[in-house]
Structure formats: C-alpha cells, structure tokens
Amino acid sequence: MQLKRIIPCLDVKGGKVVKGKSFKRLAYAGDALSLAKKYYREGADELVFLDIAASAQGRGTIKRLTRAVAQEIFIPFTVGGGIRTPSDAGEILQNGADKISINTAAVENPALISKIARKFGSQAVVVAIDAKRSQNSWTVFTYGGRKDTGIDAISWAKKAASLGAGEILLTSMDKDGSNSGYDVGLNAAVSRAVNIPVIASGGAGSARDIAKVLKSGADAALLAGILHRKETTVEKLKKGLKSLKIAVR
C-alpha cells in the first residue's frame, strides 16, 4: 500500500529555522540540525530545507547543513532556495540531499526542470509552486510571494510535470501560516491534473486538516508552524491520522 507522507519543512536562514506568516514576518524557531533530528526521531517520513536567504554567503551554510543532515538523518530530504542552474543542483545533491526544489528559477526558465531531471533523474526534482487564489482559479507567485506572474497554477503544474518534475510542492499563500486547514480545492485540482505526487503545503492546524487534504488527492503533507511552535509532534499527528483511517508509516 502507498503510505502517505508527513514532511516537516524547515525554512532556514544562517543555519537557524525561521517561520513566517503569510510569507512575511519571520520568527525564530531554533537550530536547524537539532530540530531536524527531533522530527526524524518523532517519525517524519522526509524533510524539506528551504534556504530563504539564498545569498552568496548563505550557500556555504546550506551546503554545510546538507552534509550534516546526510550524516545523521537517515530519511530522504529535499533542499531548496537559490538553485538556478544544474550545477547548483549537483552541488546540493553531491553534499547528500536526495532531491532539490526549484521555484522562481523554474518559472523564469522552465527548461531548467528538464535539464536537472535529465542529469539527476526526475526523482531528484521537486518543483515548488506558490499559489494564490483569485476568484475561481489560482495564480503563481515568485520571489517568495512578492511577484504575481499571472500564470495559472494548474497549467504550470502540468507543464512542470511534463518537463520532468518528480513532485510538486504546492503552497497556498492564502492559507500559509493560518493554521486554518489546507486549501483543499487547490490541492485536489492540481492532484487531478498531474500524474506525479503532490505535497500539500500551507495551513496545517490539526490531524483533521491533514487527513482532509490527503483524502482529496495529495500524497504528502508539509508541516512547519504547528511543529516549530511545539503545538504538536509528528508522532501525535500520525496517531491522529491513523485513527482517521489515513495509512501512514
């Protein structure tokens, strides 16, 4: 049976985890490596690290973090932020990450998806999409939610999949940081449109919220705030999911 995945996400700046609300205000949440180890021990199925500073200076930090994670944590993990070329991707993968995630760079240069996929395999390419609802559809935003591209999120997801993306990491900007549940409509629509796994992101508040979005078609749920603020643990959430008849590890 295909088991649904629970994926803690760590937004990293200078080796520290920060958590924003609706892509803005940033609050400090702790040391990235020790937090990652804690989630690993609690039963996380994968981890995602996003380098939100993505500055030249930050590259060294994220590479060091990638190496440290690979040495001490034995589940798959994705690293994103500031990857603009296949050689950027290669650097992160060589340091031990299993997958890289690309967002703005992929929107501006879709061929990047196929280039990285050809070189390292589709399983190593996660295309992250930040989407915002506008009436009856969703629009893609880039640059950490600052730039409205006017592109329809569902058609972009389809295109990314056809170019060789292995997974879509789909964040609802409306729901991010709200703890009021995922954007089920968005995740269901994209899951129906593509033939690759969709990781739902933005809005997790409870096991019930996670169950809802996983039942709507998403393959995995990304979590940040509720874990970083210690409102719950991965272990408790998985127990909750099992009682809601969601198959998890």
Partner: peptide, 11 residues
C-alpha cells in the same frame, strides 16, 4: 503502474 518512479514508503 501509472505513477513512475515508484517512490515512497511501502510495506
């Protein structure tokens, strides 16, 4: 199977 590669946790 339709979705390949077969990625993820399996029993």
């Amino acid at each position: 199977c339709k979705k390949l590669p077969n990625v993820g946790w399996r029993e």
